[in-house]
Simulated scan of single mutants.
Amino acid sequence: MERHITVPLSAETAASLRAGDYIYLTGTIYTARDAAHKRMHEALERGEELPLDIKDNVIYYMGPSPAREGRPIGSAGPTTASRMDRYAPALLDLGLKGMIGKGKRLQAVKDAVVRNGAVYFAAVGGAGALLSRSILASEVIAYEDLGTEAIRKLEVRDFPVIVVMDAAGNDLYETAAQEYRRDKSEG
Rank of each mutant, 00 (worst) to 15 (best):
R46W: 07
R46G: 08
R46C: 14
G47K: 03
G47R: 00
G47S: 09
G47Y: 05
G47E: 09
G47W: 10
G47H: 01
G47I: 01
G47L: 02
E49W: 07
E49I: 11
L50G: 14
P51V: 07
P51E: 03
P51F: 10
P51L: 11
P51Q: 08
L52F: 14
D53G: 12
I54G: 04
I54K: 13
K55A: 15
D56L: 11
D56E: 11
N57P: 05
N57R: 14
N57T: 15
N57W: 14
V58Q: 12
V58W: 10
V58P: 01
V58C: 05
V58H: 00
V58F: 00
I59N: 12
I59C: 01
I59P: 07
Y60W: 03
Y60V: 08
Y61E: 04
Y61W: 08
Y61G: 01
Y61P: 01
M62R: 02
M62E: 14
P64C: 09
P64Y: 05
S65Q: 07
S65I: 04
P66W: 12
A67Q: 10
A67F: 05
A67D: 08
R68A: 14
E69T: 05
G70S: 05
G70L: 06
G70K: 09
R71P: 11
R71Q: 15
P72R: 07
P72W: 06
P72A: 04
I73N: 09
I73E: 06
I73M: 10
G74R: 07
S75R: 06
S75A: 15
A76C: 13
A76E: 09
A76W: 02
A76R: 09
G77K: 00
G77V: 05
G77N: 00
P78H: 14
P78Q: 07
T80C: 03
T80D: 03
T80F: 03
T80P: 06
A81W: 00
A81Q: 09
A81N: 00
A81Y: 02
S82H: 14
S82D: 09
S82F: 13
R83H: 04
R83T: 03
R83F: 03
M84N: 06
D85E: 10
D85S: 09
D85C: 02
D85V: 02
D85F: 01
R86K: 14
R86A: 14
Y87K: 10
A88W: 00
A88G: 09
A88Q: 02
A90W: 00
A90N: 01
